[in-house]
Amino acid sequence: MQSPGALEISRRDLLVASAATVTVASTASLSHSQTNAPAASQSTKVSFTVNGERRELQLDNRTTLLDALREHLHLTGTKKGCDHGQCGACTVLIDGRRVNACLTLAAMHEGEGITTIEGLGQPGSLHPMQAAFVEHDGFQCGYCTPGQICSSVAMLEEMKVNIPSHATGDLLAPAEVTPAEIRERMSGNICRCGAYSNIVQAITEVAGRKA
């Protein structure tokens, strides 16, 4: 299935080359930094790697990593569900560890390596976790899904290195990928459509395949 968005854009006559939207924040600030006007928005230059590609941005200091990805790099696979660290829809991987991108400012990630859902796989070459979510119907509306998938990929890595959870019985024994462990560790990712039962099956399958 083709994305309706992609379909729409291809119908357009693109007369002008792609505008550099990443500069919007800084130019906007400059245009207002005149005498008697309030201080311009403070901005910072930051560079990091996103899905293996080096990106450099001049960003308002208040810009979250989430909005840097969505509004400046147009990587909208990472979702804004609450903007308050309550839902997990914005989960991305920073140097392999899962992070709520809405709870961290972009300027804090100089030189780091960020992986978003777009970096895990794409239609036609899905990451095993993406394929398992399709196979087990681990989603419905799809809005929490990128966060669930990023979170579950990092979560299995956490278990490999024996990071314990509230559900871990024996802190000295190797962590086991049980449904109870998965449910505990994935509880920061809310799915209001209620696909939890299917998501646990998808993650269990991937964990088994890797083992």
Partner: peptide
């Protein structure tokens, strides 16, 4: 039959309301 929109949704390629982006528009 698995969802035909599954690959788009699981890869972050399904475009939701706030995400529509025309590169020629500010």
């Amino acid at each position: 039959i698995h969802r035909i929109d599954g690959p788009l949704k699981t890869t972050g390629r399904a475009v939701y309301a706030y995400e529509w982006h025309d590169p020629n528009t500010r």
